[in-house]
Design a protein around this nucleic acid. Structure first.
Ligand SMILES: [Mn+2]
Ligand SMILES: [Mn+2]
Ligand SMILES: [Zn+2]
Ligand SMILES: [Zn+2]
Lengths: 137, 137
DNA sequence: TAGTTTTTGCAACTGGGTTGCAACACCTAT
DNA sequence: ATAGGTGTTGCAACCCAGTTGCAAAAACTA
């Protein structure tokens, strides 16, 4: 029997291992973003810290997940929903952090607005993080 | 003789010390944002790392400088130009990071644009970081 | 100038993240 | 199904940013 996560791994030329399956499952089961520490807790001592770091790194490189900039200088990861490929991410969407439940959401459908920059500044990439109260709070 | 930096320190009920004067001077002399490491380099072994950390922390608390979220998860600091006070910052402006010279600017005059969020999401604060090529490059 | 308060420097510690390497698991071809 | 080669894991050791407690030193106050 071949599961969804197995397929995602194979599609990306990654060998199917316990850690990769479990970590990928966490992302597909969860609609918010996850920090390294979340994963460490949810896998419960099953895998070495280093393995988790390396797995996340691999997933980012393959375009399976992307990192999210945070205000408090921690790193968050979330599933790429667009057609991201190795080395090229299409994840320029708005992120929302809930002040109450502290969950971070990818708002893939929200278009990032245009801003008028002063003369001489040429924009390329725009990161928008909105914080407030989420739909579940 | 009383300098500008001395006045800023006194106005904020801070005792005037060498480290505070020197670090504050760096901010007033520089129009881009500074990282802890920048300050460490520019002061040249003159002050302990811990002193620099504590000074920056104090300045942030007093509303003299503010922190800037970065993509690569480092912390940047820049002078508050608005009327920020102890505990309350008015620094919701757009930040610009130059891909070429790597300087980060506070674009105090650029209004942060409105975005349309999905139903149920109530926005409070919005952080916008634009990257591209700056006016000096 | 002396006494009080605040700040500094040092040393020790924490926590996130990385690296090298040997043991192990996964994939492929027979 | 099995053996061999390749990729992945776990461990130990390390690095670096940032924090903490405390005694010495500097700044303020009277
Ligand atoms: Mn996202
Ligand atoms: Mn700013
Ligand atoms: Zn919430
Ligand atoms: Zn530039």
């Amino acid at each position: 029997m071949t599961t969804t996560t197995d397929n995602i791994l194979k599609r990306n030329q990654l060998s199917v291992t316990d850690s990769r399956k479990k970590i990928l499952e966490l992302f597909t089961a969860n609609d918010g973003a996850l920090a390294h520490s979340d994963i460490e807790k949810k896998t419960g001592e099953k895998f070495d810290r280093v393995t988790i770091y390396r797995t996340l790194q691999t997933f980012v490189e393959k375009g399976i997940i992307h990192t999210i900039p945070t205000v408090d200088n921690s790193v968050l990861y979330a599933l790429c929903k667009m057609d991201c490929t190795e080395g090229h991410h299409h994840d320029n969407h708005v992120h929302f952090v809930c002040d109450n439940c502290n969950v971070t959401y990818c708002l893939d459908d929200v278009v990032t607005p245009k801003v008028n920059l002063p003369d001489g500044f040429k924009p390329k990439v725009m990161d928008v993080v909105v914080s407030g109260i989420c739909k579940n709070c």
